[in-house]
Amino acid sequence: MHLVYPAVLAALLFCTGLYGVLARRNAILVLMSVELMLNAVNLNLVAFDAWLRDTLHAGQALTLFTIAVAAAEIGIGLAIVLLVHRHRGISDIDRLRDLADTPGTPDADATDQQPQPDTKAEATA
């Protein structure tokens, strides 16, 4: 098999996941796109392992590790998303801007105080 086929497919899958991470608004859809990117990396690892015929099978062992780490990541990520949803009632990453810098204003605190209180009240309630 030509090595270009799996390599190109992995590159295109990675870029699809990259688009999803950048363009999606729901946090769970962003996690799905991250899974797509990890799958692209796994496909590259398996293809290069089959090409190089490594005696240690480093590519396949690393693929297994990546799959396990991705499972752990999705568990922790979903727990965080559920915690944020429970406290704020939203899972849109565009609207979670407590740590955002507002451009132009040197002291972001003074301008942030106006939209803040309702979200703070929701967080403490």
Binding site: L31, L82, S91
Partner: peptide
Amino acid sequence: VVVLLLFGLMLT
């Protein structure tokens, strides 16, 4: 993973 994602979609 997909089942977890579906659970997350439902719970949010």
